[in-house]
Structures are given as C-alpha cells and as structure tokens.
Simulated assay, not measured.
Amino acid sequence: MKLLVFLTKGFETIEFSVFIDVMGWARTDFGCKIDVVTCSLNRRVVSSFNVPVMVDKTIDEVSADEYDALAIPGGFEEFGFYEEAYHEKLMDLIRRFDAQKKWIATVCVGALAVGKSGVLKGRKATTYHLRGAHKQKVLQDFGAIVVNEPIVVDDNIITSYCPQTSYGVAFLLLEKLTSYHEMCLVKEAMGF
C-alpha cells in the first residue's frame, strides 16, 4: 500500500508530520505495509515558519495509479500556500484520485485544494472554521456542502477543520487503509 503526501509551499508542519508519524508507527511496530511517499511541485519545499523539506518525488514523477491514497496538509496564505495549492497539476492529480475512488485526506485548508479541483461539488466537507469561518465560505463557493464538524467524511474524501484535527485524520486514514483493529493498536501504542 502506498500513501502520497503532497506538500505545497507554506504547508503546515504539524499537519504534514502526523501522516509520516502515524503510518511510520503502523509500519515499524505493527508490520502494516504502508509506504509513504512525499511529493510537491518542486524537489525542495519550504513550510510555513520556514522549515525546508526535500520531497521524494515531484508531481511530474507520480501517477494516481501507483498510490492507494493522497494526503494534503493545509498551510498559511502568508507563506504562499495558495500559490501551489491551486496549481493545475495538483488539481488534475486530485481529480484522478477521486475518479478512481481512492482515499483523499486533508487537514484544515488542504480541503480548499480539493474544493478548487471541483470534486467536492454537492459533497459534504469542512475546512478551517475559526476567524469568522471565512475559509468555510470559500469552500462553499467551490460548491461543497459545508459541515461545521471537526472531521467530515463523504465517500472517499476526508476533510477536517484545523491543525488540532490532524491526528484524527491520520488515524482515520490508517483505518481506511488497513482496519479498525490495526488503527486502534497504533493509536494506543502512541498514547492516544
């Protein structure tokens, strides 16, 4: 099994690291065969708060056919998140994952990339809910049915509304890729 984690310029570090951590625990301590591959538009990506990360592959080197799930952390507009989150190459990748009914998991404003791609039209989703819910209004403008809950699942898409939900999203994705039992073992071993 393979999880593709897509990083945009200005991504939120905690929202990225949970996927690496949870899937790493599952693989290392419990033998779950989940490989995590990081990807971006460029080989080097600078997160919000200026943490540089080297990804495994660029978007031109991946195909939705090769992966079982896609994870998209959110990020900060002030650090250029939307410059890459709305890039047509990412929009196309999201559409391909959705067309194959593969899992797409987002944290916070990562949902806006999925919304912009068009695959959330008429589907339930959520995104950042604080500061006047202005990001939820953007998601609604993309055609999503906004649900103001911490984590929302509609068919093959998982969305959530703030960094605090990131572990919940990663555990839920682990459950969808393996089983409820496997997820519970990892969650308990990590102290949750």
Rank of each mutant, 00 (worst) to 15 (best):
D92Y: 07
A113M: 00
T178Y: 06
L112D: 02
R123G: 03
L172T: 14
L139F: 04
V45H: 00
P150A: 01
C39K: 00
S47Y: 09
I94D: 00
V18N: 11
G80W: 05
D56F: 02
I104D: 03
D155H: 10
E66L: 09
I20A: 13
K57W: 03
I94V: 08
F142I: 02
R27C: 09
L7R: 09
L130C: 10
G118C: 13
I20K: 13
E12M: 09
A99S: 15
L173N: 06
V18D: 08
E188I: 14
L3I: 09
D141H: 13
T165C: 12
V146D: 02
K89L: 08
S47I: 04
G118K: 15
E88N: 09
V36I: 12
L185I: 05
C39D: 01
A85C: 06
V107H: 04
Y128N: 11
F142W: 02
S179W: 14
F76T: 06
S160C: 08
L172V: 09
G74R: 12
V62D: 04
N148H: 10
R43V: 01
D98C: 11
V55F: 00
F49Q: 15
E149R: 11
V114L: 06
V153Y: 05
P73T: 01
D56N: 11
V36H: 00
E175T: 09
L139I: 09
E84C: 00
G143D: 13
T178R: 07
W25L: 03
S47Q: 06
L90N: 05
V114I: 03
K102I: 04
I158L: 09
E188P: 05
K176G: 03
C39H: 03
R123L: 08
G80I: 05
K116P: 05
E88H: 15
S160F: 09
T159N: 01
F6W: 04
K101N: 15
S160Q: 05
S166Q: 12
V114F: 04
S63Q: 06
Y167A: 10
M183I: 07
L112P: 01
G75N: 01
H181C: 06
R96I: 10
L3K: 02
K135C: 07
A105I: 05
C184Y: 13
R96H: 14
L41E: 04
V53D: 03
V45C: 02
T28P: 01
M54Q: 13
F6N: 01
D92F: 10
L41M: 02
E12F: 06
V36W: 06
A64G: 12
R43K: 09
H181S: 14
V37H: 08
V152M: 00
M183T: 11
F192M: 14
K121T: 12
V186H: 11
P163Q: 10
V114D: 07
I20L: 15
C162P: 04
S40R: 00
Q100M: 14
F19R: 02
E175I: 10
A69G: 03
F142S: 03
V114P: 00
D29E: 11
S179E: 15
E84K: 01
I20M: 15
K124V: 06
E66Y: 08
T38F: 07
P73S: 04
E12H: 14
E149N: 13
K101R: 14
L173Q: 11
L70F: 05
K101G: 09
L4N: 03
F6S: 02
T13W: 12
S48C: 10
